[in-house]
């Protein structure tokens, strides 16, 4: 099953809509609560990343009976040094974003922590793509 969502840069109010919707679906599919939480947290962080850093983003969620594959593609400034960006506490978030309680530099690390498979590619000046694959069975 394929679900698509959009995230707009700067829109923190609606960041979280996709993870909330995916949560509802996984609940109806009888997925264990702990596994749902991992997906929801990873996706939510990815949504916030788009809202905090990019201009806009598209989310593609592919749900199968044994796994969920998420691809978040944004158009934005991209990431210069991915290795650095992955470090906990490293953040390029603006003052405004930090004042809203986001941008603590845990985002990418947290996505990775909550993913079974995590891939990230980025072209500076164009945008970033994050891929998350999680198993839905223990």
């Amino acid at each position: 099953m394929l679900q698509t969502y959009k995230v707009t840069g700067g829109d923190f109010v609606n960041a979280g809509k996709a993870s909330s919707s995916v949560k509802g679906i996984l609940k109806q599919l009888n997925v264990l609560a702990g596994l749902i939480k991992r997906v929801v947290v990873a996706l939510y962080e990815a949504e916030v990343n788009v809202a905090a850093h990019a201009y806009s983003g598209n989310i593609l969620v592919e749900i199968e009976s044994d796994q969920v594959r998420i691809r978040v593609t944004d158009s934005g400034p991209g990431i210069e040094d991915i290795q650095m960006a992955m470090k906990e506490g490293f953040s390029t978030a603006s003052k405004e974003v930090r004042e809203m309680g986001f941008g603590a530099g845990m985002g990418l690390a947290n996505i990775k922590k909550n993913s079974d498979t995590f891939n990230i590619t980025s072209v500076p000046g164009e945008g970033t793509t994050v891929e998350i694959i999680n198993k839905l069975t223990d």
Partner: peptide, 17 residues
């Protein structure tokens, strides 16, 4: 839980679609 569409995951997914 009353949310679950079907105990069988693939049937639940069919129903969801």
């Amino acid at each position: 839980s009353m949310m679950v569409l079907d105990r069988d995951r693939s049937l639940a997914l069919e129903k969801m679609k």
